[in-house]
Design a protein around this nucleic acid. Structure first.
Lengths: 207, 207
DNA sequence: TCTTTAACGGGACTGTGGTTCCGTTAGCTG
DNA sequence: CAGCTAACGGAACCACAGTCCCGTTAAAGA
């Protein structure tokens, strides 16, 4: 009788509940990849996950809720980061990683669907921002190292430099169109490195 | 009996047909702004446009088709471009324009919806790419002038420089989250200018 | 101005995504 | 390991987006 406080799945999160959650998130991923965000219906997700339609609606309610949960799950899976000796090399490695992710048919389709979902729902957008926050934070240290080495000015906004590498790739991916080729990736890394060295991402730029 | 070849609206495009098209596109814009791409239904658009539901379904068929038509219509409305004396100034002006567009509640919501729509439909994506192709082409001359003035190396990819200005703004708008403030805009313009001057957007970079 | 027929639009119809009801299964606690 | 009940899941139900039918309106061309 004590108020359990909230959502289903919070009181008995183990065993079956966890299994169903994993199956549904996996199914949602597949469905998003195949049909895209617009073509997603929760009944189809339930079928793929071999779960009851009711269960999916009760636990996640809407497509937005399901996608938000999927994003949180994805954020927890960390991707290893390489480290070369120079800022340029590190940024190039990051650009290559991002390019490969977006160019991959499955991953690319998934990210497109996730971003489309976030464009329409504030809650999903927040989850997406958190996801990218963690991803960016994982790479920020390469810029901080560069600051320590004296390659770029002190006070440089590390996260912003990493974002500057991704930006042209996402721009072409979502907005401009055209192939996500390696040239674009190396160019993005170089542009970010050059700008960072010039102090564009440091606060007081005036000499 | 002669085969008219195609879509409704092509044989008698004047008068009523044109009026209905304009009203429907306007209504679609409003609906996209208010409800977003996911929440769009053609019956609602028809109601807003005071047109028959049948008409909308017959002429545009799907949400994707309607959005594609809207994008073509938008591409035809040209936006004036200012011109300062320096590349940095011109890019800053462009960045300011893009920032204001995306930060504006109505325009921003519209673009978000359009991009979300394009993420899920190849045909809509093609229309979106055409739209941005014209927008970018309108600004490319400022880079070409800079080449003539010797500010940036010959062979610099003008369109790519313009895209480099927009990229960080769109990245934050769609992916990363956070305020679309003026600092971001000026930073984007400066980074692009610095990189362009360094020859990042010119083919053979080796000295 | 008159004729032809393209295009519009009201209203009935249908398929399916989403909701509700209620019986069944299996986590958690003692 | 037994009882309590959270959480699952099948099936009937419902609302509404999208389709179809057919009469009405008004472009285009003579």
């Amino acid at each position: 009788m004590a108020a359990d406080g909230g959502e289903p799945g919070t009181v008995r999160p183990g065993g079956r509940t966890a299994r169903v959650r994993a199956a549904v998130l996996r199914a949602a991923e597949d469905a998003l990849i195949e049909k895209g965000f617009a073509g997603l219906d929760l009944a189809d997700v339930a079928r793929r996950a071999e779960a009851g339609k009711t269960t999916v609606y009760r636990r996640w309610g809407t497509v937005a809720g399901l996608v938000a949960d999927l994003l949180q799950d994805m954020a927890e899976r960390s991707v290893p980061r390489t480290e070369t000796g120079s800022l340029r090399g590190d940024l190039a490695a990051n650009a290559r990683l991002v390019r490969e992710t977006l160019a991959d048919p499955r991953q690319g389709a998934l990210f497109k669907a996730l971003i489309a979902a976030a464009a329409g729902e504030e809650r999903t957008a927040a989850a997406l921002h958190r996801f990218y926050g963690t991803r960016i934070a994982e790479w920020a240290p390469v810029v901080e190292r560069a600051v320590e080495r004296g390659e770029v000015p002190a006070g440089t906004d590390a996260a912003e430099v990493i974002r500057a590498v991704s930006a042209p790739l996402y721009y072409r991916f979502l907005v401009g169109g055209g192939p996500l080729d390696e040239e674009l990736a190396t160019r993005a890394a170089e542009a970010a490195a050059v700008a960072a060295r010039a102090g564009v991402y440091a606060p007081a730029d005036t000499p």
